[in-house]
Design a binder for these strands. Sequence first.
DNA 1: AAAGTATTCAATTGATCTATTGATTAGAAG
DNA 2: CTTCTAATCAATAGATCAATTGAATACTTT
Lengths: 234, 234
Amino acid sequence: MSTSPSPDTPKPAPGSGDFKHELFAQFARVGKALSNANRLELLEFLAQGERGVDELATVSGLSVANTSQHLQQLRQAGLVLSRKAGLKVYYRLSGDDIVTLLDALRAVAERHVAEVGRLVNTYLTVKDSLEPIPRDELLERVKHDLVTVLDVRPPEEFAAGHVPGAVNVPLAELEQHLQDLDPRQEIVAYCRGPHCVLAFDAVARLRERGLKARRMQDGFPEWRQAGLPVELED
Amino acid sequence: MSTSPSPDTPKPAPGSGDFKHELFAQFARVGKALSNANRLELLEFLAQGERGVDELATVSGLSVANTSQHLQQLRQAGLVLSRKAGLKVYYRLSGDDIVTLLDALRAVAERHVAEVGRLVNTYLTVKDSLEPIPRDELLERVKHDLVTVLDVRPPEEFAAGHVPGAVNVPLAELEQHLQDLDPRQEIVAYCRGPHCVLAFDAVARLRERGLKARRMQDGFPEWRQAGLPVELED
DNA sequence: AAAGTATTCAATTGATCTATTGATTAGAAG
DNA sequence: CTTCTAATCAATAGATCAATTGAATACTTT
């Protein structure tokens, strides 16, 4: 602030310049919420559905207090809502437009930040045939029983909704289920979102075993948001 | 970092947790670029087209050095590209997906940050009949000569492209052009984007004079991005 | 009422961000 | 070659942010 010496003088003149700046400041508030890796990770988990604070803390590797503070920042920016039930407090995204925003952010990062491409490539070692299968295409093939769909998320997430016909095989149990998989049928794995590593990992391991495996485009939240059918339990 | 004592130990183990965090950190880099009101304002101007540093500095009210630094941050985040021609350096958005991202950000802010709605309402005093006219609808009416389209941006921006049939009337000259406007025909004003104040202002003033005036949905960058016809010069 | 649990609050420290200032570079023009 | 201009760089001070710690709150269970 070059003109106002007092820090808490809000905006003396209600001219349009102030209005405009005020408005951009509000947009920036949302941007700030997206400016921290831990908060983005929390948002990705929340895109799965409602979650309690301690779950989020565990899964993101942050302390509970820290997680709570990040969640409050997200709430102040209007990105999440909370609900108290007994002792627990559940957080959820405040609307589908948040998923849209996160996807736009991801798309830009992928397209423009060279680093992201490098990371993905490094991690995947093999690059060929890694194009994810589009949702519609997968749905079509599921209908005709042409693929085995693998949901590699933890059982709780699977229970809360999954792609119809999908089999829940958490990554840790993948080895034990290898024999149950038909080596002639293509396997499509998915998890939380476009960059959830579980699916990447699963595909890499399956391919090591000589199986035909691909990832599904994006993840389950995007599947649900696209209005495609969702199955509960199994 | 709780485990690594040395600050510049990048990531010792290439486990998937690190990979994931690394990835979110890259996304956060883009988020950071969006976390400052001045940078968002610069991006809005750049959505208009290529601009030099000093132009951007003037229009945003920042010092040249400061503007330059913000632009470099935007470039490092992959949001803008620069081109040097003689003494001047021109910046532009690095792709259409940036406009998409900005729109998503705006949409979320509008929907969830109560403050934004309050500001818009305060500024506009009257709230009724302020729904902006959709682009397609406007295009249709322009074809049948049912509306007067007013471009309230500065002449240079107008010259670089505008809605077909639009008349360029910078806000300062609005009063002088009042007599040229047909009071029986509806007037649609637009400027840079959904929250560019010029159009808001113009509509408010026209309505004060008893004219039927509305804003166009969003602004010219969005019009162009929607693939609608653009006219050059006049 | 007492103990326990999930979450939030408050205070602190070190890190990062913003805007300013003045110097510096690269090219243009005299 | 000198002067001018547009832009960038470098250093700085003040503000804001992130993670930690320990205490406080709200609700449940015993």
